[in-house]
Amino acid sequence: MTLVMVLVAGVLSSCGTYLLLGRQLSRVVIGIGMLGHAVNILLVLSGGDGGRPPFDGDDPAGFADPLPHAFVLTSIVISFGVISFLLALAYRSWQVTGNDEVEDDVEDRRVATHGQGGAE
């Protein structure tokens, strides 16, 4: 672990969370991307301070830990899948409603406004 990269992960998580709490789907997508990056930093850091690329034939003592690399590789690819899917949703949302806003559930709002007087 190094303090500077831990702080970068913290900043990315904060920014990602902030974007995630918004209403525009395209911003949510960007937020999810940032959260993915933050997690990947932590995964790589969990393998120690890094080293030479882990290729067989070199001296294993100087290797970076390969296992977190494998995890991160999976994570990058899955994040890409998620982001692409969400972008497709944003596109569809634009097609249907003309924007990419994450709207409130109409049914739940109805319960909230009508439910105040007790049982129906």
Binding site: G47, G50, P53, A64, H69
Partner: peptide, 8 residues
Amino acid sequence: VIQGAPDL
């Protein structure tokens, strides 16, 4: 790259 993970 810096951490020694060229695949990533």
